[in-house]
Design a protein around this nucleic acid. Sequence first.
DNA 1: CATGATACATACTTTAGGGTAAGTACTTGT
DNA 2: ACAAGTACTTACCCTAAAGTATGTATCATG
Lengths: 121, 121
Amino acid sequence: MTAIKESSTIQENKHYALEKCPVTFVMEKIGGYWKPIILYHLSTGDKRYSELKRAIPAVTEKMLIQHLKQLETDGLVIREAKPVVPPFVTYSLSEAGKGLLPVIDAMAAWAFKVKDGVYSV
Amino acid sequence: MTAIKESSTIQENKHYALEKCPVTFVMEKIGGYWKPIILYHLSTGDKRYSELKRAIPAVTEKMLIQHLKQLETDGLVIREAKPVVPPFVTYSLSEAGKGLLPVIDAMAAWAFKVKDGVYSV
DNA sequence: CATGATACATACTTTAGGGTAAGTACTTGT
DNA sequence: ACAAGTACTTACCCTAAAGTATGTATCATG
């Protein structure tokens, strides 16, 4: 979790956008290359860390946990670790996370419309 | 409009995500700090360039046109310039752009739920 | 005659995010 | 004894996206 500089215009602007724009607020939560994909894979039920890793082969381990941690601190996913060895950790969507599924669906619907040529883009 | 390098892992991964994930596809279109805000301001009707500028004081002119151009080439907004001087340019949502409004709304709805404490985040 | 308004453009710098590579700790299987 | 699987962590690098600053052309107005 890369530390962020406190004083930079980019952060101030982000803050501005965050306050003014609910969409930016959501984007903060599910933005990034892998977060939506992770969310998608968790939408079908909880998964172990290694299952996610195998399900999304293109993601690096660093990115995977980094995003999982961020999703966790954002309250979108729940991490449950059984105190056994080898470790057994499962990730699942929280209620807030599940609440995002309609958003995801609306996005997917639009994307498919575009790909089907419904809009003349 | 910063040129993108064709060969870099980040681009390959983006491509992967784009193919596999409709959500990432949408994110490509409306991601960035200012795009959602621009879209929001255009949702209430077409606006002149200077109106947008005044409506979103925190955005720099560079970012504003850069995103407007990108939204235009992505087919989400329509630019209309009257050949007069001083210039008179209006931006409005295309059909595809309007098609995104449900997505925006779903996002806003979720954001407000979070802020109202509906989810225990 | 110079300032302001219109709608941009462009060179340069910074930073946040993503990527690479390697290491940790502990156990089971061969 | 050593590889493999579990779930991470950490140090370092690279780039795309955002920001800064300034310039352009044309006309109206004071």
